[in-house]
């Protein structure tokens, strides 16, 4: 690998090293952590966060930010649950309606950002309020689901040795991961996203379809946020309008820890998955410890975020110097 390629991959390599080091450190500290069961639970417990973080990676790669994803998750979750339970819609129709709503809101946000050059954090901030408001309008109490098809979907799992299992939610995560990795690296849409993040002006001068791609990125983010809500609904077998509060920050933290530059242009979908795993390892370590309180998660994530941002800055400065 030549030096330029190495430098480009350095953030994600650091993340991978931290991820493995943390996994080993936590495993040495607590016995039973090195089991297949705990390993696969890392995926199934964080599947909704993973799906959402992967979707929003595209927006961040364009140099924007999407703050509406957390409340979109809550909105999709309560919408699907309420349509199934109170509206007696079939499971797939209800889930599709929630996904379509997510894509539609994402499309609107993208259109406002792309056509009128509005700051993305402001528009998606409004989206955050909007989705949370709609979610609470649908139902303020959480809605338990007893739809036979839905419950068989939620209960579906592939048994592995050692009482480990791959749940339906982890399968969704893997599918989203593979599709998004392909889209980011192998399609025109993906390459245009990286170009926009590098320099929007250059991308426009190159004749790339900047507006259409920007709208696509926000639509994808909204769709993935709604899909995250659907995964969360599968995970808990209920819909809850206030679920996902503050999740946008966790997701953005995962993307940054995964080595994606918030100024756009550099980063990878796979890095985001590593970021989600790091978050999951921190959370399960705190659960294994038992005496440490949950707020330590926030402080540890904050410290990790700071570390990664400083590392990114140092890499950027080194790159600028060698140019």
């Amino acid at each position: 690998m030549n030096r330029a390629a190495l430098r480009e991959r350095l953030p994600v390599l650091i993340t991978a090293a931290v991820c493995v080091a943390m996994y080993v450190a936590v495993g040495l500290r607590f016995d039973k952590f090195f089991s297949l069961r705990v390993f696969f639970n890392l995926f199934s417990d964080n599947a909704f966060l993973g799906v959402i973080a992967i979707g929003t990676t595209f927006v961040i790669l364009t140099g924007g930010i999407d703050l509406s994803i957390g409340s979109m998750m809550g909105c999709a979750s309560i919408m699907a649950a309420s349509l199934m339970q109170n509206g007696h819609w079939p499971a797939f129709a209800a889930l599709s309606a929630a996904l379509a709503f997510g894509a539609l809101v994402g499309w609107c946000q993208g259109a406002l950002v792309a056509f009128f050059r509005l700051p993305s954090f402001l528009i998606t901030l409004a989206g955050l309020f909007f989705c949370r408001g709609v979610a609470l309008r649908i139902s303020q109490e959480s809605v338990q689901i007893d739809n036979p098809l839905f419950n068989s979907l939620a209960g579906f799992q592939i048994q592995l040795p050692g009482r480990a299992s791959i749940t339906a939610t982890s399968i969704v995560l893997f599918v989203v991961l593979i599709v998004c990795m392909f889209v980011a690296r192998q399609t025109r849409f993906g390459r245009t996203i990286y170009a926009i993040g590098g320099s929007m002006a250059s991308a426009e001068l190159m004749g790339l379809k900047v507006r259409r791609t920007l709208i696509g990125a926000y639509t994808l983010s909204g769709l993935c946020a709604a899909l995250g809500g659907a995964v969360f609904t599968l995970y808990t077998s209920s819909g809850d309008a206030i679920s996902g509060t503050g999740l946008e920050l966790d997701a953005i933290a995962c993307v940054v820890i995964g080595g994606t530059l918030l100024s756009g242009g550099y980063g990878s979908v796979f890095g985001t998955l590593l970021g989600v795993l790091i978050l999951g390892i921190v959370e399960s370590a705190i659960t294994f410890q038992g005496t440490l309180s949950s707020w330590w998660t926030k402080i540890v994530i904050g410290a990790l975020l700071l570390m990664f941002m400083v590392v990114q800055k140092l890499i950027e400065r080194a790159a600028a110097r060698s140019r």
Binding site: F121, A253, W295, T297, I299, A303
Partner: peptide, 27 residues
């Protein structure tokens, strides 16, 4: 001094700040 983007730099305290507040109050 670190020249970080404001959204990101303040995101840090937004995530960790509530944790610190809970630490002070012991939850």
């Amino acid at each position: 001094w670190l020249d970080l983007q404001p959204i990101v730099a303040t995101l840090l305290l937004m995530v960790a700040g509530r944790g610190i507040a809970q630490l002070f109050a012991n939850g």
